[in-house]
Amino acid sequence: MYDSEDPYTDQDSLDFGKADYELTASSLITVDYIAPPAAISDYVTTLYHFRCEEPVIRDIQPASVGHLSLFPRGKGEMHFREGHRDPNPEIAILTPLSTATPIIVNGPFHVIGAALTPLGWASLTGLHAGDYRDRLREASEILGEDIGPIGQDLIRDYRSGTKSGRDCALALGEYIGGKVKPINSRHAELIRVVNNWLGSSLNPELSELMGKAAYSDRQVQRLTERYFGLPPQALARKYRALRAAALLSFPQLTPEFEAELGNAFFDQPHMIREINRFAGRTPARLSDDDNPFLSEMIDPKNFRELG
């Protein structure tokens, strides 16, 4: 069903729903979401402030575009599908994730951050999303030394109580607004076209994208991986699973959405595997309140760039 450039195979699946990976209960976690100011809404999906006071926290980050984050409290690791583990720096860039990724942290654990759009990743970092995907890195390695003093000041003020989590999140947003740079206008238009294509259906046809993009098929493949981290069909697979997870988290679905879900996957086991791979949950556990961070990240409002 997917072309040879799709990096996923049936052999590389991970079952994040196994009993030996017990997630921290939602009642122990608080997450505040702050709408990004209009000036940065093209670049930032949401700002957030995450807190958990438990001695050990286990969570799952769904596949995403990228984050700029502060970790004022808590030390731990992200466990990536490829087998490597990255510790969390106090000032970090989470690069675009191709799959859901487990997090294990010695708490208390506090995170303040900004979830980026594809345009935000490109304009803020200038990096090839496919080459840099699936890592948690020191922000200064990617953004330059200026983020270090800014981030340390915010962490100090947060720890002392001088600034709230909301204050720090908005300050990160202000930093992003001052740091982003324009990208090639034709590339920006392609990002818009790809967003609209992804939002047109749970299972969009590749030919429709190629027909609307002002580039050759090979250029579309190359540029989509550059800005989104994956080639088009693999990207459609990722967003199909995330949007299906968002739909299945609703208390009830309209007949139209039920039909669209039924037509988007080969069968129910296939849908379960796909949602587990990209959202880190089986459909039966999407609305069990075990993971409020995941629930927010797959909320439909966070796919607003998809049209």
Rank of each mutant, 00 (worst) to 15 (best):
I275R: 04
R133F: 05
P89W: 00
R285H: 14
D153W: 07
Y8C: 06
T224K: 09
L143Y: 02
R133K: 15
S123A: 08
Y8P: 03
R281F: 15
S98F: 04
P182L: 14
G113L: 12
K163R: 14
P87C: 01
T30V: 14
Y43M: 06
S26K: 02
D131K: 03
G17W: 01
A38K: 14
G120W: 07
G66Q: 02
T125A: 03
A25L: 11
F109G: 00
D6F: 00
I272V: 14
P232T: 02
R137T: 09
D12A: 12
G17M: 07
P55M: 01
F265A: 12
T9G: 11
Q219C: 00
L190E: 08
P232G: 10
L154H: 13
F303P: 07
R73A: 07
V220P: 11
G229Q: 14
T101D: 04
E53R: 05
D157R: 09
P204Y: 00
L209G: 11
V44H: 11
L294I: 05
I60K: 12
A245P: 06
Q268C: 00
R58G: 09
R273L: 03
D167R: 05
E77N: 03
G17P: 05
V111L: 13
H270R: 02
R304M: 13
N88R: 07
S295K: 11
D146S: 15
G211N: 03
E54P: 01
G126H: 04
E138R: 06
P292A: 10
L230W: 13
E174Q: 14
W121R: 13
F250N: 15
E82Q: 15
T99I: 09
A244G: 13
R218A: 12
I104M: 11
E145Y: 10
K18C: 10
L70P: 05
P182W: 15
L190P: 15
Y8D: 09
M78C: 06
P89S: 11
Y158P: 07
A25E: 04
Y132C: 09
D289A: 11
P55C: 01
L223V: 14
S201T: 05
L68P: 05
V194G: 01
G173N: 12
T254L: 06
E258K: 02
